[in-house]
């Protein structure tokens, strides 16, 4: 019995190490495939992602001081949906005056460019969409808490 146990343990040890080595290459394959499939499905090339990253850095820099190089923008799959995951290492939030200054500088630039009626309209639609989503979420929360209450009863 003891011998058999020992034998299994030794064998198991070797199997484990083998498996780990296998998994590393398997994991690279899986991760590479995920990225490529995201690109295929969304049509977002690495070039476009990089452009998006840069524009996001520019936009967010108005509000927070961050590690620009460490900003990560990835496409991730969650079930049927593709999500854009953004991870920003924030060094510190900017104070009000800094934000104001950045926004004003931005306004000036915009005015210098073309008329910005369209962009304002777009902003508005985005806002209303956001609000709707938030409201929906609240509803869902209420529903779920209600359900819990009922189950307690």
């Amino acid at each position: 019995m003891i011998l058999a146990n020992l034998y299994n343990k030794v064998l198991g040890f070797f199997r484990q190490t083998e498996k780990e080595a296998e998994e590393s290459s398997k994991d690279t394959a899986r991760n590479r495939l995920r990225v490529v499939l995201m690109q295929d499905r969304t049509n977002l090339t690495p070039e476009l992602m990089e452009r998006m990253r840069k524009e996001l850095v520019e936009l967010l820099s108005k509000y927070v001081e961050m590690d620009k190089e460490a900003l990560e923008l990835n496409l991730e799959q969650d079930g049927d949906q593709v999500a854009l995951m953004l991870s920003i290492p924030v060094i510190r939030a900017k104070d009000e005056e800094e934000i104001k200054a950045a926004l004003e500088a931005d306004k000036k630039e915009e005015e210098e460019e073309i008329s910005d009626d369209d962009t304002e309209e777009e902003n508005n639609t985005y806002k209303s969409a956001d609000n709707e989503e938030e409201e929906e979420e609240k509803h869902e929360d209420k529903n779920s808490t209600e359900e819990i209450d009922e189950s307690k009863k």
Partner: peptide, 11 residues
């Protein structure tokens, strides 16, 4: 591109 590991460099 995948076999060469160049999939992220294609512009």
């Amino acid at each position: 591109d995948l076999l060469l590991g160049l999939e992220n460099r294609i512009v």
